[in-house]
Every structure is written in structure tokens, then in C-alpha cells.
Amino acid sequence: MRALLIGAVEGTRVAANAIAATPGWELAAIATLPPELAARHSDFVDLAPVAAHHGASLVPVAQCNAPAFLEEMRALAADIVFVIGWSQICGPEFRAAAGGRVVGYHPAPLPRLRGRAVIPWTILLDEKITASSLFWIDDGVDSGPLLAQRFFHVAPGETAGTLYAKHMTALDAMLRELLPQLAQGPVPGEVQDEAVATWATRRRPSDGQIDWREPAEQVERLVRAVGRPYPGAFTDAAGKRVTIWSARACACADRKHASPGQVVLRDETGFAVRCGDGRALHVLDFETAASGAPMLHSVLGGGA
């Protein structure tokens, strides 16, 4: 079985290794963003070494629905196209060029949380259980028949980084089970239940701006949701951006008279900022836009 893999992130690398390691499969090519477009994904991974290691062609592609790329797809004559870690919608011409056999991946328990930025949304929504999903791509968005799903718990202090890692482990396990099945013959998949479908909207880096009028627990959740490998939660101090990578809600502002956004504590581990509910956010890891060095004033921006 010949596979064409399309993507540009860690999940693409996981999929490449799984395909190449499965008997009966050949990783014919990896299509990915050219280096000059790497900024499209905050979690971009250079897949050139992966392709070279597995003897696969590396195909740079800016738009997967462009006629020139569709011609390359037809020439590759892959039995199945895997789209894993790719933010562009695969249109009808794309699916036709792939012979209608296109497998997609989504880090959510489909049909719940179709759409964009689902790892941050999983944390922001305080989901207790999530899943990784593999499915046949159809003419909808994350709506095709399910080929595999692996559920797991979301820890109380889950961060974008730890949740991302859990999804990569689940993706690897699912692929190593599914690939032999696909090689043996058609796998129709399970139709998704539209009655319980939900959709997650796109998030931009600007959505990481902290509003200190919010409760401390909610601000902490934002920090956890948009941290590495994403752009991070941020605020302003003296006109300079401060990105907060790690923090925890605490009661250290209980006896401090301050407004939301004011620094109420400094210690050897960091500093604390009063939030809208009277509690505080104890910031443990942060950097400034200028140099990465601490530069804090008594009042921070972002909604104070």
C-alpha cells in the first residue's frame, strides 16, 4: 500500500514513523509547507529529515487544492492519502485526485469539537474526557465516518503541552492498529451522530490576551490552554508584552487591597497579580517581548 502523507506538525511526524514501520505499507511522499511558510503553524515541524530517513519524497505545497499539487498527487498514485497536521480544508477536487480515499486526524472526540484550535478549547471548556479521532474525510468539516477513536482523561492541571503529548501517544497507537486493517481491505467507518456535534471556532494569538477582571481560575486556565507549543497568554507592563507560560491561581491576595491587574506579591518564584474575584494569579514562568528578562510594574495591562 502506497501512502501520501500531508501535514506540517508533530502529528505528521508521528504518522510518518507509523506508516513506515507497518508491514505492507510504503511511505511514498510527505507533502508539507515550504520553510518560508512555517509561521502558518506555531507547532511547525521540519519534516525533511523524516522524509529522508524513510526514503520518501518531500513535496513542498502551499495550497493543497491548487491544480499543480493535484497533478502531483495523481502522479504519486497513492492508495490512501493521510492528512494529519494540516489546517487547510481538502476540497472535492483534492478528494477526487486522491481517489476518494483520504484519512484525516482530529484531536477531539468527534463529533464533539469539530473545527479549529481544539486542544486549547478542550482546556478552556474544562472538558474532563477527550479523544483522538481518525476518520474518512468527506465534503464536510471533520464530519466523515470514524475509523478509530481513543479516549483519555484530561488532568485537572492539564496544559496545552501535556495534552498535545497525550494526543500524539493516542495517534501513534491508533495508526498502528488501523494501518494493517486498511491494508487488508475496505474499512467503511462509523457514521458520526450529527445530533451531538459541536464546533470550535478559530483562535488567534490575540485571543491569548489576559483580562485581569476575570476570576483567577479562569485566567489560569487560559495560561494552560494557550501555552507552548502555542503563542502563550500575555499582558502588558509599561508598554511591553509579557508572555506568561506557567501560573497558578492562589489566595495570596486575600489581605491585599488592590485592583484587578495590580501586582500584589513578589517572591523568589515569581510574582502574583490580583484578579477580578479577589484571588490572584501566581506567575511562575514568564518572559518579556524585548529580551526575555523580567520587567514588571505595579499595574499590568490587559483589562485592568
Rank of each mutant, 00 (worst) to 15 (best):
Q209I: 12
L163G: 04
T169W: 01
R248C: 00
T201A: 14
P156N: 04
C250D: 08
L175H: 13
V154S: 08
F152D: 03
H167P: 00
T169E: 13
G227A: 10
F234D: 02
Q192A: 11
L171M: 03
V187W: 11
D207Y: 09
T235R: 04
W212L: 05
P145Y: 07
R213F: 01
A183T: 14
P180Q: 06
L175E: 04
A216S: 03
E217W: 03
D139F: 06
A155N: 01
G161W: 13
W245I: 00
P229W: 01
P188W: 08
L134N: 11
R248I: 02
Q149G: 04
A200G: 14
A183Q: 10
A247I: 03
L147N: 11
E194C: 00
F234Y: 15
S143W: 09
T235K: 02
A170F: 03
A258M: 04
A237D: 11
R228S: 14
P186N: 14
T159P: 11
L146N: 10
R176L: 12
V196C: 09
A237G: 10
F151S: 09
W136R: 14
S246F: 06
A165T: 09
L163V: 10
G189W: 03
L146D: 07
V154Y: 06
F135N: 10
F135M: 13
F234I: 00
G144T: 13
A148Y: 06
R176Q: 14
P156V: 02
I210C: 06
G144L: 03
A225Q: 05
A165W: 02
A183F: 09
E220T: 04
Y164C: 05
P215V: 00
A165C: 00
L134Q: 14
H167C: 01
A170S: 12
P260L: 01
W245P: 00
R255K: 04
A195R: 15
I137C: 01
R150V: 12
R213P: 01
V219W: 04
